[in-house]
Write a protein that binds this DNA or RNA. Structure first.
Length: 139
DNA sequence: GCCAACGTTGGC
DNA sequence: GCCAACGTTGGC
């Protein structure tokens, strides 16, 4: 199993909206960046991801699961763009802020720190475990 | 609200 | 194919 991070503006599509979709989940559509799309193509059923709020929150707030592998993005006719479906798995009992992540040297190599604009990114297993521990949340 | 970083576009 | 201009994103 691999681990990922999905970034969203909470005012546009936040964790509560994701939770409201329940087990049916929702397309992670609207990504118009090749790097982010390529990561979604690598995702497999059952992979886990962090749900990150950018802008005002700047924190990891929940864990999601990939429930459908890459398929055409229904928000466009442009066949270049694909996306996966994800569902909310559980919230973080304590959100892990960007400041907390930046303050831990073990997390300095994360794209979140080095390339803050990449909206879908991979997370290494050890990084995953560290952040779950910080959030007092089962990995 | 500002600004830096980055990706994309379009002219040459 | 290069590069300048522009738009967008996200952190501060």
């Amino acid at each position: 199993m691999r681990y990922w991070l999905f970034k969203s503006e909470p005012d546009t599509w936040g964790w509560p909206a994701q939770v409201a979709k329940g087990d049916a989940g929702e397309e992670w559509d609207g990504v118009r960046n090749y790097q982010a799309r390529n990561f979604m193509r690598e995702m497999r059923l059952g992979d886990r991801g962090f749900f990150y709020h950018s802008q005002s929150d700047k924190a990891v707030v929940g864990i999601v699961e990939v429930i459908k592998e890459a398929h055409p993005d229904s928000s466009t006719d442009d066949l270049r763009w694909e996306c996966v479906d994800i569902k909310a798995l559980r919230p973080f009992s304590q959100p892990v802020t960007l400041a907390m992540i930046k303050s831990d040297p073990r997390l300095a190599e994360m794209p979140l720190v080095k390339s803050p604009r990449l909206s879908v990114q991979p997370v290494a297993k050890d990084e995953w475990d560290i952040i779950c521990a910080m959030g007092k949340t089962k990995s």
